[in-house]
């Protein structure tokens, strides 16, 4: 289902005068494709450069909204402070099998974060781009080939009791049929474990040990068969190929050295 967008094709001169939006500084600029100039040490620029971003509407599988929360109870921390620390220490809060490599600019609108993950023992090199960041939240969007197609929003707010709550809200669907099968068998649980770990780590930074809650809602149960072509960009398959080619080169080099 792809509708035309008449406004973007030809807007009239008499449209309303442009207003200065308060959120303008928080949103990234639009890019046709991801362009990477500097790759952080340790990261692999695989499945990132040249990829288009894909949102919750472009993927293949069922669309899920999952909301994870932890109450930062018993400590004096504002939502702004919690999100500031979260941005600064984002890679540290990840589990060992899901490494994030931010650019020098860190978590800021338009910046790309590289990901080196391991799913079921298989490497997956991919990334995300920060499309929105303000003092109390930031959102990353996935590129083609990433296991998910959608957004993750990391935020904090004050609840009715005055306690700061840290939250991750994911709105995403599997990018292609292989990922959809993977998520249904085991991937969804793995993903839930990752975000639970992140919230636990953030809470532990503030000396809090509270349970992480998770709510999930299937927003759209339909599979989008028109997106089956996304298989071509599957980052898992391409990462495997990348790793095998790398191993082959290493073996050839080793044999050459032993032969001389």
């Amino acid at each position: 289902m792809t509708d035309q967008t008449p406004q973007s094709e030809g807007r009239g001169e008499e449209r309303q005068p442009s207003r200065e939006p308060r959120d303008a500084a928080f949103w990234a600029q639009r890019v046709e494709r991801l362009e990477v100039s500097d790759v952080p040490a340790g990261a692999a620029n695989v499945n990132v450069q040249g990829r288009r971003e894909v949102g919750a509407l472009q993927g293949f599988g069922q669309l899920w909204q999952k909301t994870y929360r932890v109450h930062l109870a018993g400590v004096e921390v504002t939502p702004e402070e919690a999100v500031r620390i979260w941005k600064e220490r984002f890679p540290e809060f990840q589990p060992p099998n899901s490494r994030f490599y931010p650019s020098m600019a860190g978590v800021a609108p338009g910046e790309v974060l590289f990901i080196s993950a391991s799913v079921g023992g298989m490497p997956v090199y991919t990334g995300v781009r920060v499309i929105y960041a303000d003092d109390e939240s930031f959102t990353v969007m996935t590129p083609e080939g990433h296991p998910e197609s959608g957004w993750n929003t990391f935020s904090a707010y004050t609840d009715e009791d005055g306690t700061t709550v840290a939250q991750i809200q994911s709105l995403a669907r599997a990018n292609d049929p292989v990922y959809e099968i993977g998520f249904r068998i085991m991937g969804a649980t793995e993903q839930e474990r990752i975000w639970t770990h992140v919230l636990k780590s953030l809470a532990a930074h503030f000396g809090v040990n509270e349970p992480v809650t998770m709510e999930k809602v299937c927003v759209d149960p339909k599979l989008q068969w028109s997106q089956i072509k996304n298989l071509w960009h599957n980052a898992g398959a391409r990462s495997m190929l990348y790793t095998m080619v790398g191993a082959g080169r290493w073996m050839r080099g080793l044999m050459r050295r032993r032969g001389t």
Binding site: S8, W27, A28, G55, L57
Partner: peptide, 8 residues
């Protein structure tokens, strides 16, 4: 456009 909502 950034979020690709305009596709739909």
């Amino acid at each position: 456009n950034i979020t690709r909502l305009s596709d739909f």
